[in-house]
């Protein structure tokens, strides 16, 4: 196997044998592998985890104990919801991603008899994992929006949801963007854990190649590290650029 062939395999992975493809789920997802699969899972974890994160964040009170939606609520159910959301977030954050991945692959079948393709499980577990961490970022971002803007929006007659959707979220979004991108880099790096459950992303692909190329394992792993590093470093540069741009803009304010 030449160097270029190895690189190509790491980027694209091994095609899934056709008898293992489940026709009920998107074909391209199941046949994807290597770096692209790692990136795709990261992408999907934002697609599904983003809304989850927003809901979790809105359920919780902000740092000062005020509701993030509308008027400060004192009703018991509001507090119960906030408590529940906090428990979900703290609970998932306290379990290592390695265990979350293993649980996602062994628990549904054992408890519910549910057998899903590996890629579906991978997307599911990373969506939850990402959603839980993102919700913290969103919550911080939302509570950092100055009340002056919210007051101004209210005196103009905007409803609670309009204030949230048109004023609070967009302002928070710009401030959160660096942190969200940083989170994307973290998730991307964490997809490497999927190698232990044989999802054919970058790290697992290296193991697969190693079977036929045992003498090249060291080189393969070095290549893998280089690939991860380039993507993550490019992301980090982008993050610091955005951060600087945002600071500059706030300073002009």
């Amino acid at each position: 196997m030449s160097f270029m062939e190895m690189l190509h395999t790491l980027l694209w992975g091994y095609p899934l044998p056709s008898e293992m493809v489940d026709p009920r789920y998107p074909l391209f997802l199941q046949q994807l592998g290597g770096l692209w699969l790692a990136l795709t899972i990261t992408g999907f974890s934002f697609l599904f985890g983003g809304p989850l994160a927003l809901v979790l964040a809105l359920c919780r009170y902000d740092r000062h104990g005020a509701s993030l939606v509308g008027q400060p609520g004192t009703k018991l159910d509001r507090r119960a919801i906030s408590f529940l959301a906090t428990a979900v977030v703290e609970g998932f954050q306290s379990i290592p991603i390695m265990i979350l991945v293993l649980m996602a692959f062994y628990l549904p079948f054992r408890l519910l008899g549910l057998r899903l393709p590996a890629i579906v499980m991978a997307v599911a577990v990373f969506s939850i994992y990402n959603g839980v961490y993102l919700s913290g970022i969103i919550r911080l971002g939302l509570s950092a929006v100055e009340t002056g803007w919210l007051d101004a929006a209210r005196t103009l007659g905007l409803s609670t949801w309009q204030v949230l959707w048109r004023i609070r979220l967009p302002i928070a979004m710009r401030a959160m963007l660096p942190a969200v991108l940083g989170q994307a880099i973290t998730v991307f790096k964490d997809t490497s854990v999927l190698a232990v459950v044989a999802v054919g992303e970058l790290t697992y692909t290296a193991r697969q190649v190693q079977v036929s190329q045992p003498a090249n394992y060291g080189l393969l792993l070095l290549l893998v590290l280089l690939i991860y590093w380039s993507v993550a470093a490019a992301g980090s540069v982008l993050v610091s650029r955005l951060d600087a741009a945002w600071r500059k803009r706030l300073a002009g304010q």
């Binding site: 490497s192 970058l202 060291g218 792993l221 993550a232």
Partner: peptide
């Protein structure tokens, strides 16, 4: 080291 995922680093 910040941009290297820990598991592949350990494998290496």
């Amino acid at each position: 080291f910040r941009n290297l995922p820990p598991l592949p680093l350990l494998l290496f």
